[in-house]
């Protein structure tokens, strides 16, 4: 196991060392100490490695992640795992706004609460939040799943495309074109799998499903003639 102490090394040094693992993995397990809220920690990883961040991280932690398994033992700032492609990012504390924004794949688990705009424009990632999420979450979400074990803030799933949203608690309000949908057996199976992957033992039958009503401009075939 390799330890990088950020009171001695710079974030640039850390990221460079982690990027060097993308050619061939010489060190599978990494620990980062004294992150002290630094931005851009473990960004752009492209290797099957484990990175443990021992403390709070700043903005864009584990952004653009591919294959790596990043765990933050604390809170994260804005844009954790933004544009993630694959791998697993786990936040033991809370996440600020835009967690998992635009992410294409992989799994993001937030064990605390997530702020506003969680999963905004998500494109295939699976996000599981043990706590609650803030307003405008999953805005223009295109694909993937968002699971919330607590409550959701205002305007959930506004202008949604095909993301599957599951919420156990209260939804303050639904955004434009987002509706509650029937929880069919295939959805219970999907949710059960997501909860298991995230290591959460909530009962999938206690969740409600939300999705797109497909009534906005983009969904109308008549508008295709404009092109």
């Amino acid at each position: 196991m390799k330890t990088v102490d950020l009171t001695i090394s710079s974030v640039r040094d850390l990221n460079q060392a982690l990027h060097e693992q993308s050619r061939s993995v010489s060190e599978k397990s990494w620990t980062v100490t004294n992150p002290k809220g630094s931005h851009n920690l473990a960004v752009g990883l492209d290797a099957n490695i484990d990175v443990d961040i021992q403390g709070h991280a700043g903005y864009f932690c584990a952004g653009m992640n591919k294959e790596a398994n990043v765990t933050v033992h604390g809170n994260v700032g804005q844009g954790v795992a933004e544009n993630m492609m694959s791998g697993v990012v786990r936040v033991k504390g809370d996440a600020s706004q835009a967690a998992g924004a635009t992410a294409h794949g992989g799994l993001l688990v937030i064990e605390g609460n997530a702020g506003a705009r969680c999963g905004i424009s998500m494109k295939g990632v699976d996000i599981v939040v043990k706590g609650s999420i803030g307003h405008m979450s999953c805005f223009m979400g295109q694909s993937g799943s968002l699971v919330v074990c607590g409550d959701a803030g205002e305007a959930l799933g506004d202008s949604l495309y095909e993301v599957h949203i599951y919420v156990k608690g209260e939804v303050k309000s639904l955004g434009a074109d987002c509706i509650e949908k029937e929880m069919r057996p295939e959805h219970v199976t999907e949710l059960k799998g997501l909860l298991e992957k995230a290591g959460v033992d909530d009962n999938p039958l206690e969740f409600k499903r939300y999705g797109s009503a497909r009534q906005l401009y983009t969904f109308k075939v008549d508008n295709a003639s404009a092109y």
């Binding site: 630094s38 809370d94 803030g134």
Partner: peptide, 21 residues
Amino acid sequence: EYQALTTLPDIEHAKVWEPDA
């Protein structure tokens, strides 16, 4: 940003959160 709080005494044990909208 949290970075500005890291030098405070006992910050490791403080309750840290983002104020709501």
